[in-house]
């Protein structure tokens, strides 16, 4: 792929790569803007830019990640995701075949998630001005009237649920990027969760909050929830699902799986009375088979996440700071 002057290349790419895969009645109009009917309730709107190395990894690539991530950001707010935009920044020299693979998996992901890619844009930049491909996706969804899902809604006594194993995405990325030979079985969990969330909301209509624990992992997300609602969260370490291979790789690297990114998991906070129903609904879904109640919301230690270890002591789960530096003097 070469750098296109005056956007001619972009047009070519649109015609040859994007439209064949992403085409749909809204996009096909190729107007300067997408137009669609609004649904009742509030509008949810989000944007995220995906920069990941490597762009292909076990369990997915940057394309489905860009769709799933934005779909999940809408869904965890209680919205029904509908329309996405896709903006591409491509580095010259990116093989067309790779771009095509990426676009194709975006289309598949959108189809699976039941969302429409309604508008898009492409820029090709000189070598070195970006790393192969960056994708921005924005998304619009609708929150049905009367639904209130917010990270400020946590109440003492609520149950904290997790939809499945933690750390899969981050570990898959890390081990692939560094070419570590010893953990080839770890797959990213990249997935759209809006289907499961719809079932979950039906089963637990009084659900308080949902979040997808992406960057910073479960540790970062729970800390944010505790801070936003000024409550404490107490986890039970033994109940947190972690795949053996993820645990092994994390231990080897000295990384806490709680601080590792996920792309197809969510944390759910529901009133204790709805915990069983919520759990059952999640477990029926393919992305929630290993769902578990992992803790509860407490009045004690507002703003702080604490984890009960199998030995019975309570360890503070901090907001991850990026690099994990040795503390032991």
């Amino acid at each position: 792929m070469a750098h296109g002057a005056g956007g001619r290349l972009s047009q070519e790419l649109t015609a040859r790569v994007f439209m064949p895969h992403l085409g749909n009645p809204v996009l096909d109009q190729l107007d300067d803007q997408a137009r669609f009917e609004a649904e009742p309730g509030r509008i949810a709107f989000t944007t995220d830019t995906y920069v990941v190395s490597p762009i292909f990894f076990p369990g997915g690539n940057i394309g489905d990640l860009a769709v799933n991530g934005t779909v999940n950001d809408l869904a965890v707010g209680g919205a029904v995701p509908r329309y996405l935009s896709a903006g591409f920044v491509l580095e010259e020299g990116l093989p067309l075949s790779e771009l095509e693979r990426i676009v194709k998996s975006m289309a598949d992901a959108a189809r699976k998630a039941g969302v429409v890619i309604a508008c898009g844009d492409t820029k090709v930049v000189q070598k070195g001005q970006c790393d192969r491909i960056f994708i921005n996706t924005s998304g619009v969804g609708f929150i049905p009237p009367g639904r209130d899902v917010s990270c400020r809604n946590l109440r003492p006594g609520d149950a904290v649920l997790l939809s499945g194993t933690i750390g899969d995405h981050g570990m898959a990325i890390l081990t692939t990027r560094e070419g570590l030979s010893f953990q080839s079985r770890i797959q990213s969990d990249s997935a759209a969760l809006n289907g499961m969330i719809a079932d979950l909301l039906a089963a637990a209509p009084n659900l308080h909050a949902m979040r997808d624990p992406t960057r910073g992992g479960v540790a970062a997300t729970l800390n944010e929830l505790a801070l936003s609602s000024s409550v404490g969260i107490e986890l039970d370490e033994a109940t947190i699902p972690v795949r053996e291979e993820v645990r092994g790789a994390a231990e080897l690297l000295g990384i806490d799986p709680l601080a590792v990114a996920n792309e197809g998991k969510m944390l759910v906070v529901v009133p204790a009375a709805e915990a069983d129903a919520a759990l059952a609904a999640m477990r029926l879904h393919e992305h929630g088979r290993e769902a578990a109640v992992i803790g509860k919301v407490t009045e004690e230690h507002p703003g702080m996440v604490v984890m009960r270890t199998p030995f019975g002591s309570r360890r503070i789960v901090e907001m991850p700071l990026g690099e994990q530096l040795p503390r032991i003097c």
């Binding site: 070419g179 570590l180 080897l252 040795p326």
Partner: peptide, 23 residues
Amino acid sequence: PQSAQVLELLRKEVGTSESSSCG
């Protein structure tokens, strides 16, 4: 048991912290 893996981390400089530790 995991010497080979740790050596790989060292070769690739992944998961290691630089330290002038005396302890």
